[in-house]
Design a protein around this nucleic acid. Structure first.
Length: 429
RNA sequence: GGAGAAAUACCCAAGUCUGGUUGAAGGGACCGGUCUUGAAAACCGGGAGGUCGGCGACGGCGCGGGGGUUCGAAUCCCUCUUUCUCCGCCA
């Protein structure tokens, strides 16, 4: 959500930005908002004036009553009666206009950073940089579910029976690697000065609607029957919700948090749920990083944050690249965003394992996340990035650390979390 | 889950029964000063937040959130949320 002042004062900039994002159908909305805003302010002004008059007369009644002038007071009372209806009309109109403006403002995309490449859709995203050699080994890498199965590490038949498609039982060493990676990801961020946080895994509807649109909510969020609660789709939901309507102390900035949570997603529409594997599932776990900072610091943080994820994957011997999101593929709330993609030696291409975004002040404006400065409050900048989402991260790990005999190398960094093991091999079930 | 109590500004806290000059006493913290080598203490002085509209003068809203009664609500009514105490239940 952008500042409406931009539409008041610099409509061309807003429209130019919309064109860059290939959303020309929204150009008209900008003009509509402009007109509605004028009407809104006129209505408010008229209403405020009437309310001021009415307040003055009410105060007068108070004085007259105290002086015992009942008759005069009653006369004034009758005068006031005329105000009521008009004020009510204006208030209703004012409210309607405000609501309409807000609804339309929500659809106006955030102003993207100058550095964002212009492109229509995800096919025009731009590879920024590769880290590590994308190796194609001289043996065939099995499908990830087969790797897991060979090590007795997954039971999807059972999860199908208990929970349906899109769930999984991870077993034995595979389950242990999964947890080890998350623990390592947690400590990796703690070592970089982030504060570890375990948030609520369910949030109320007002928090949900604060962080996403109704359409997104329908497509993603699981609702708890009979309660005003939803399972979170990512800890970002509860982490950003934590700061909703808060005025933060300048001296506490920046907030650098790393949160763990399970994530629940309906994955309606989208690409659907995969039948065999665990690439796209209804339930996964994630170590996330969230930063709330001063506006001038957000671009620095953005660059630090994606770099952390790159370093994390490199420390597990997984080659990665960063893919910059082009203007047309960039979600409306975002200023700039890139995916961190891991190398798949099986598919011989990169696949998404994380996403780093700066939302500028758009999310903060929408949720009322502010700090107090010299001249009143101002909106802060919010950023979020994946450290590790798994089992997806586990897929990247297995494919890049498997040997020809099906055993899995455990990189040094992970060994403390794996009981010191250097390698895992198939044993009995 | 049952029974009670409470939510006022950066913090503590009065006001609520008995609606009107209460944007809201008082204290702390804060800022400026006196004193002091410096600091603390003491004393003197200062300003009370937020948000929306307006170039401004100023005005609207605002005492946990939402709604209602009234010419007028921190104050009365309804509702939601949260916190505390007691009982019950539980990893």
């Amino acid at each position: 959500m952008i500042d409406i002042k931009l539409i008041r004062e610099n409509r061309d900039l807003v429209k130019e930005n919309i064109k860059k994002k290939f959303q020309d159908h929204k150009l008209l909305t900008v003009d509509e908002i402009y007109e509605l805003d004028i009407k809104y302010r006129e209505t408010k002004q008229e209403g405020d004036n009437l309310r001021a008059e009415k307040n003055a007369k009410s105060a007068l009644i108070g004085n007259l009553m105290r002086e015992g002038k009942k008759d005069e007071a009653n006369t004034v009372k009758e005068e006031i009666a005329n105000y009521g209806k008009r004020i009510e009309e204006l208030s209703a109109l004012e409210e309607d206009l405000a609501l309409d403006i807000k609804k339309k403002m929500m659809t106006i995309p955030n102003i993207i950073d100058d550095s964002v490449p212009i492109g229509k859709d995800d096919s025009e995203n731009v590879e920024n940089e590769k880290f590590g050699e994308p190796v194609v080994p001289d043996f065939e890498i099995p499908y990830h579910a087969d790797i897991m199965e060979a090590l007795n590490g997954i039971d999807k038949d059972a999860s199908g029976r208990t929970s349906g498609n899109g769930f999984y039982y991870l077993m034995g060493d595979i389950a242990r690697i999964h947890s080890a990676m998350l623990s390592y990801a947690r400590d990796f961020m703690i070592d970089r000065g982030f504060t570890y946080c375990i948030p609520p895994f369910m949030i109320r509807s007002d928090v949900v609607t604060g962080v996403m649109s109704f359409e997104e909510m329908d497509a993603m969020m699981y609702k708890i029957e009979g309660e005003d609660l939803f399972l979170i789709g990512t800890s970002e939901h509860s982490m950003i919700g934590k700061f909703k309507d808060q005025v933060l102390k300048k001296e506490n900035l920046p907030y650098t948090l790393t949160s763990y949570s399970p994530c629940f997603r309906k994955e309606v529409g989208a690409h659907g749920i995969e039948e065999r594997g665990v690439y796209r599932v209804h339930q996964f776990e994630k170590q996330e990083m969230v930063v709330i900072c001063e506006p001038e610091d957000s671009m620095d943080w953005y660059n630090k944050m994606w770099r952390y994820t790159v370093d994390f994957f490199r420390s597990l011997d997984i080659p990665v690249r960063t893919l910059e999101c082009c203007s047309g593929d960039l979600a409306d709330l975002k200023v700039k965003s890139c995916d961190v993609e891991a190398w798949s030696p099986r598919q011989q291409k990169y696949f998404e394992v994380g996403s780093c975004s700066t939302l500028g002040d758009a999310q903060a404006r929408r949720l009322g996340i502010r700090a107090k400065g010299e001249n009143g409050t101002y909106y802060l900048h919010t950023l979020n990035n994946t450290v590790l989402a798994t089992p997806r991260g586990l897929i990247a790990f297995l494919e890049n650390n498997i040997n020809a005999d099906g055993s899995i190398n455990i990189p040094v960094a992970l060994r403390p979390y794996m009981g010191g093991k250097e390698k895992i091999e198939k044993k009995g079930k």
